[in-house]
Amino acid sequence: MTTQYLILSGLIFAIGALGVLIRRNAIVVFMCVELMLNACNLAFVTFARQNGNLEGQIIAFFVMVVAAAEVVVGLAIIVTIFRTRRSASVDDANLLKY
């Protein structure tokens, strides 16, 4: 039973990772990262079930906390840069290169 959940979590994670790599809008990229974190949560909870201990669920809590903090910080950064450039495209952020 748990295998399906794991596959699902793997899929979500892959979708998230793929999204980070191919999407160009910073917010979408960022949401994809959050998706990846949630895939992790799913995996943790599944494993907690599989292993029969609660640790995984506790970890999921912490991950949520971290994800929340990340959201706060990340959106702040994205909004700042958006206000400056009127664009949230990662491609437009190209000043830094050699």
Binding site: F61, V65, A68, A69, V71, V72, L75, A76
Partner: peptide, 13 residues
């Protein structure tokens, strides 16, 4: 929204 997230997390704990 940010504040909500922070405090909601508090509630989680």
């Amino acid at each position: 929204a940010m504040l909500f997230i922070v405090f909601d997390i508090e509630i989680i704990f």
